[in-house]
Computed example of a mutant assay.
Amino acid sequence: MPTGVAIRDVREQLFDAADRILLRDGPSALTSRAVTTEAGCAKGVLHRHFEDFDAFLAEFVLDRVHRMDAQAAALREAAGSGTVTDNLTDALIALFGSVAVAIVALVTFRDELRARLRRAWPAGVPVLTEAVTTIAAYLAAERDLGRIAPDAPVDALAPTLIGTAHLLFADRGARPGRDAVRKAVTTVVAGVL
C-alpha cells in the first residue's frame, strides 16, 4: 500500500487479518508479514502501531478474550431456559467455532507471547480460563435455579467441559458436528442434571 494512504481502524484491520490467518492456516503461519499482507497494508504499519510482533499478538489475544464477554452474557441470560445440555452445547460450539482453538495453540508455542500475557493475565491461557469462568458462572446460575443438583461441583465441571470441547475441536481439519459436542456435554453433566 502506498505511503500517505489512510487506513481506517488499523488495529482492527490487523486483528481481523490475524483471525483469518489463524483459522485458515494455523498459528505457525502467523507472521508480521503474513498479517500485513492479509490486511492489505505495508509491513511498517504494524510496527508503527505496536512495539513489536509479540506486542501485537498479546494485544490481539486480549482483544479476542474481551470479545467473549458478549458470549458470556448470552449464556448467563440462557439460564433457566431451554435445556442445560443444549445451552452448554451451543456455548461450546460458539466458543470453539471461533478463533479460540488457534489462539490456544499460538499462546502455547510462543514463549515471549506467554511472558507478555502473564503481565495482564496472571494465570492460565486467557481464552481457556475466561471460558472456564463463563461456564462455571452459567452452571452456578442453573444450580441456583434448581436445574442442576445443589451439590453440583461447577468448579470441576466447567474445566472438564472446556477441556473436552477443546480436544474435540483441536483438529482444524475435522470439526465435530453438533451431535458429537452434545454427546460429550451430556456425558459430563449427566450426573448433575
Score class of each variant (00 low, 15 high):
residue 76 R to Q: 08
residue 76 R to Y: 10
residue 76 R to L: 09
residue 76 R to P: 02
residue 77 E to M: 09
residue 77 E to I: 09
residue 77 E to S: 15
residue 77 E to Q: 15
residue 77 E to K: 15
residue 78 A to E: 11
residue 78 A to I: 03
residue 78 A to L: 11
residue 78 A to R: 15
residue 79 A to C: 08
residue 79 A to S: 05
residue 79 A to P: 05
residue 80 G to E: 02
residue 80 G to H: 10
residue 81 S to K: 08
residue 82 G to E: 11
residue 82 G to P: 12
residue 82 G to H: 14
residue 83 T to P: 09
residue 83 T to L: 08
residue 83 T to Q: 02
residue 84 V to I: 07
residue 84 V to Q: 00
residue 84 V to A: 03
residue 85 T to I: 15
residue 85 T to E: 12
residue 85 T to A: 15
residue 85 T to R: 14
residue 85 T to L: 07
residue 86 D to Y: 00
residue 86 D to C: 01
residue 86 D to R: 13
residue 86 D to A: 08
residue 86 D to N: 09
residue 87 N to Y: 07
residue 87 N to M: 14
residue 87 N to C: 10
residue 87 N to T: 09
residue 87 N to E: 13
residue 87 N to V: 03
residue 88 L to E: 12
residue 88 L to C: 01
residue 88 L to R: 06
residue 88 L to I: 04
residue 89 T to V: 02
residue 89 T to C: 00
residue 89 T to A: 00
residue 89 T to W: 01
residue 89 T to R: 01
residue 90 D to F: 13
residue 90 D to I: 13
residue 90 D to L: 14
residue 90 D to M: 13
residue 90 D to Q: 15
residue 91 A to Q: 11
residue 92 L to W: 13
residue 92 L to Q: 01
residue 92 L to D: 05
residue 92 L to R: 02
residue 92 L to V: 01
residue 92 L to S: 14
residue 92 L to G: 06
residue 93 I to A: 08
residue 93 I to T: 10
residue 93 I to L: 14
residue 93 I to G: 01
residue 93 I to W: 05
residue 94 A to L: 03
residue 94 A to W: 10
residue 94 A to K: 14
residue 94 A to E: 13
residue 95 L to P: 00
residue 95 L to V: 11
residue 95 L to M: 06
residue 96 F to N: 08
residue 96 F to C: 00
residue 96 F to S: 01
residue 97 G to R: 01
residue 97 G to I: 02
residue 98 S to K: 10
residue 98 S to M: 09
residue 98 S to T: 12
residue 98 S to P: 03
residue 98 S to I: 06
residue 98 S to Q: 00
residue 98 S to V: 00
residue 99 V to Y: 06
residue 99 V to D: 06
residue 100 A to S: 14
residue 100 A to Y: 07
residue 100 A to Q: 07
residue 100 A to D: 12
residue 100 A to R: 07
residue 101 V to H: 02
residue 102 A to Y: 05
residue 102 A to S: 10
residue 103 I to S: 03
residue 103 I to A: 03
residue 103 I to N: 12
residue 103 I to Q: 04
residue 103 I to E: 02
residue 103 I to W: 02
residue 104 V to F: 10
residue 104 V to W: 00
residue 104 V to Y: 00
residue 104 V to L: 03
residue 104 V to H: 06
residue 105 A to E: 10
residue 106 L to Y: 07
residue 106 L to N: 07
residue 106 L to P: 11
residue 106 L to S: 08
residue 108 T to M: 10
residue 108 T to K: 15
residue 108 T to Y: 12
residue 108 T to C: 10
residue 108 T to H: 13
residue 108 T to Q: 15
residue 108 T to W: 12
residue 108 T to I: 01
residue 108 T to A: 15
residue 109 F to R: 11
residue 109 F to K: 09
residue 110 R to G: 08
residue 110 R to V: 12
residue 111 D to R: 14
residue 111 D to L: 13
residue 112 E to Q: 14
residue 112 E to N: 14
residue 112 E to P: 03
residue 112 E to W: 09
residue 112 E to M: 11
residue 113 L to A: 12
residue 113 L to F: 01
residue 113 L to P: 11
residue 113 L to W: 06
residue 114 R to A: 15
residue 115 A to S: 14
residue 115 A to Q: 05
residue 116 R to T: 12
residue 116 R to A: 13
residue 116 R to Q: 06
residue 117 L to P: 04
residue 117 L to F: 02
residue 117 L to Y: 11
residue 117 L to V: 09
residue 118 R to D: 07
residue 118 R to C: 01
residue 118 R to L: 07
residue 118 R to Q: 08
residue 118 R to G: 04
residue 118 R to E: 04
residue 118 R to N: 00
residue 119 R to D: 06
residue 119 R to S: 09
